[in-house]
Write a protein that binds this DNA or RNA. Structure first.
Lengths: 151, 151
DNA sequence: CAGCATCCGTGCGGATACTG
DNA sequence: CAGTATCCGCACGGATGCTG
């Protein structure tokens, strides 16, 4: 029952706040360096970043453990994504000089702070997933009907 | 736990919840249809979706108004992004048979519910933006120093 | 005004092979 | 084990021109 008035005010607050932020970014002509949406969210929007962060949410993990946690990522993309996350300060990398070598990745305090807003978005996505899939079916059906009227 | 007492219980709750969700999605072997992160967030992760949603957070807007609100998007990508958002049920499209025709876009109730979690993530990004940029500088400097030791 | 059609370049990401 | 190096396809997205 989150859809009612209780969430209405919160969502309206979010809307007004977002509208104001958006206006302030517009003033800067969306300078990529000054727009957090472009500079931060676009990086998290790649194919693997969020999944890696999720995999690390349970605690530190080694390279091959991450590869097993996300089975369909290639070693190449796992390395690259981890490097990007490390560069942004979300993930820390620690090398243990064992033989063979082992490397452990973990969320930094900065990366740790992201879990909360990320979790909110993911839980929202999960909650609305069925509705979204239903909307897609409706859209595709209406669209195909319009595309082939006589079929 | 070792990560950060300062960030507190909310972040730890988010971490545990996320870890549990991640485990449950793993069981499904990340079937794209069953994983909200892949099926929903990946779509929002494209170059323009979040900016369009932000532009609509202030209220309904016409096509050319959106094009002005996001100056560096092409008409082609604006149309395509709006279609995708409409297909997922986030955005509604209303055609007014004026001359010349005008089309108005607005958030649906479903799209409206996304503003709150999206705002949380964006506000987080804005709040940590400086720290992220600083981390990038540190990383790049350390990396270039390692790449050219004698320079 | 609000698109659609077409062409085209870039870069993301996959596959494979090799290394310390 | 934890990467690097290389090649390559394809889809994302930009530029331009045309239409109702």
């Amino acid at each position: 029952m989150e859809q009612g008035e209780a969430e209405g005010t919160a969502a309206e607050g979010a809307r007004d706040e977002l509208a104001a932020k958006f206006a302030s970014w517009q003033v800067l002509h969306f300078d990529p360096a000054g727009c957090p949406v472009r500079d931060v969210l676009d990086r998290l929007g790649d194919k693997w970043s969020t999944l890696i962060l999720l995999a690390l949410s349970g605690g530190p993990a080694r390279f091959s453990a991450l590869n097993r946690a996300v089975p369909d990522i290639s070693k190449r993309m796992l390395t690259q994504t981890l490097r990007d996350l490390e560069r942004d300060g979300f993930v820390g990398r620690e090398v243990f000089p064992t033989k063979p070598p082992s490397v452990e990745y973990r969320l930094t305090p900065l990366g740790f702070t992201m879990l909360e807003p990320l979790a909110n978005l993911i839980l929202w996505a999960e909650e609305r997933h069925a509705a979204i899939r239903a909307a897609r079916l409706r859209f595709d059906e209406a669209n195909s009907a319009a595309a082939w009227p006589g079929a």
